[in-house]
Design a protein around this nucleic acid. Structure first.
Lengths: 352, 352
DNA sequence: CTGAAAGCGCTTACAG
DNA sequence: CTGAAAGCGCTTACAG
């Protein structure tokens, strides 16, 4: 029942372990005949090298780490599960394993990466949700370690990344709202240490200018990524006078919160105030009313990230693996024409 | 810059590697003085043993694997991210690593586990969503390998598990609906190869009997776990005559689908037809109207699963680690009193 | 109480 | 083309 080792295989073949090892690893100085003989026997005996021994001998780990986003709102982390599934599939295609790095702070994440890379436990890293200035990326670059980023940060020209053009997405969203007659478009943004937050705000601002709408700083908010934060931020924006007739939100959970804020004022999302989110979460279909959103591409980002990382491990140039994908507008029911004379923003006063 | 090895540390201390190793590993036959000296030096030089070498020498891996649920609806897998976070935290407390097993079929999962355990890449396994008869569990039990199950299966008396009593939860839900005057309560169940599906249906049926309600097989459906399947199943149940005045769903995504089915018939969930889901997903707050549900305990199941597994690895008896938690009713807006004379189930006819 | 040695299961220069 | 040997970085009986 014992797992067949190299020694067992070699003994059975009356060859030395070294020869068998080389035959299996495709060394060209082995005669074609014995190579075949060895491979057949290996298959028959169900031999597979022990990864731990191999790792110790070669210093190369057939495993990569994925750095989990830090604990936050579970809704805004719903991209993780499908990403892990895709990543796992891509790695499984080559027999590589997938490790999870889970820490509460960036310095702890860096420490974990330092340990894993220094001891050669992993051969590559996938990172999500980079900061504009990201200590994890700095570390990996400094160590010359293969990694690919799900998103971008400052200095992304130098490394491999997979991102969705959320700047363009937010510009498109503004354009759509402008075409619907909206002139005062509010923006619920995300904390600006996230690169994507900066991108989305930039897209919003640029499109405002392009459409000749004035950029009222009072129409911009920054909130955490979740629904509760989105609701509070949206409520604040809606209480301004004149109020925005439309709200763009950096995430779908924020947008769901915004819908709640609108309903709380006795108004109807999509009629009195339009809302467009970003993510394309399927749960948006069940919102009240169903949420219009800029949807990230269906394409399997996890699988693609895995493929890119394996290519880097094989010696590919990081700059050859930089992919910018497009988000697509997913029209549901929260984007409507601007109300004739702005939204009825006298709700609070009326109820006094 | 090279990582300090055992050899470097031993040379620096003018001791043999063996002595240093034993001092660090708490062997009692080392003098207290040198033990202290060694530990101080190890700290100062930032020594940490190479896990790969240690693993090869001891045959013990300081890592565990989590078997991902198979690719399905992302909404119904939203428990995975928080679970991984909690699990990762529990393991990090002891410096253990977390591996992901991702496969498309159960046999592939078993093959992956066989490989990981045979090569001593892992020291334990966490499993989610067991089948009633589960080949992965059979394999792990046969191998005598430490594992803990998130849920239960047949034969769960013999192994460690963490579960929520969904049988009791569904019984309670039926009781609440019965108290609201509902006599015809429909049930959208999950595929019965999942243990939890059986439990939930059993709880439903038992409570029906306990409350003197008749168990009409025509009021029971089986559907996939997601919203689309839930919507179709609910639509079918609602078209029966007489129709149910309330619907119990095995998952929150199914329940969201049920709300859609009710609205599609021009009826109002919670008024014309009541709905109670199960999961307690936060997204239910944004449903139309907000979804009443049996919420799994807030308690951090991932962390607890990790703690239990570590206890098993330390030699704990599996039967000492079996925890049944309670779900709590989360009242939102979809459970209401039964309509006077049943729901207006003439929608289709009227529209002809 | 400490050291020397063997071993975990591989890979890979180095000879021949 | 193949074998013998050293080495990856640890741990752990076994002596003394």
């Amino acid at each position: 029942m014992a797992r067949t080792s190299l020694k067992m295989l070699a003994d059975h073949l009356h060859l030395s372990q070294g020869t068998v090892s080389r035959a299996l690893n495709g060394y060209t100085d082995i005669s074609a005949a014995t190579r075949l003989r060895v491979r057949d026997a290996a298959r028959d005996m169900g031999y597979a090298p022990n990864p731990t021994a191999r790792r110790l001998a070669t210093g190369i780990a057939e495993a990569v780490a994925y750095v989990m986003p830090q604990r936050g709102d579970s809704m805004s982390e719903s991209f993780v599960t499908p990403l892990l599934q895709g990543l796992g599939e891509a790695l499984a295609g080559r027999g590589w394993d997938l490790l999870i790095v889970q820490a509460a702070t960036v310095p702890e994440e860096v420490a974990a990466l330092r340990r894993l890379t220094a001891t050669r436990q992993i051969g590559g890293v996938v990172l999500s949700r980079p900061r504009k200035s990201d200590a994890r990326i700095d570390f990996l670059r400094g160590a010359g370690f293969p990694f690919v980023v799900h998103g971008r940060s400052e200095g992304c020209a130098a490394y491999a990344w997979y991102d969705v053009d959320s700047r363009a997405a937010f510009a498109e969203a503004v354009g759509r709202l402008a075409a619907l007659g909206h002139r005062r478009i509010g923006f619920v943004g995300a904390p600006l240490h996230f690169t994507f937050a900066q991108d989305r705000r930039d897209g919003y601002r640029a499109a405002l200018a392009a459409h000749g709408l004035d950029a009222d700083p009072g129409l911009e908010a920054v909130a955490a990524l979740d629904d509760t934060a989105g609701e509070a931020a949206a409520a604040a924006l809606l209480s301004r006078d004149p109020a925005p007739t439309a709200l763009l939100c950096a995430t779908d959970p924020q947008a769901l919160g915004a819908l709640a804020a609108i309903r709380a004022r006795g108004m109807v999302p999509g009629r009195d105030v339009s809302v467009i989110g970003y993510d394309g979460l399927s749960i948006g279909r069940h919102a009240n009313p169903p949420l219009s959103t800029m949807a990230q591409p269906q394409a399997d980002s996890g699988r693609r990230l895995g493929e890119m990382l394996l290519a880097l491990v094989d010696g590919g140039a990081p700059t050859d693996y930089q992919e910018l994908h497009r988000a697509e507008f997913l029209r549901r029911d929260t984007d409507g024409p601007a109300p004739e004379s702005g939204p009825p923003n006298n709700h609070r006063e009326k109820n006094r």
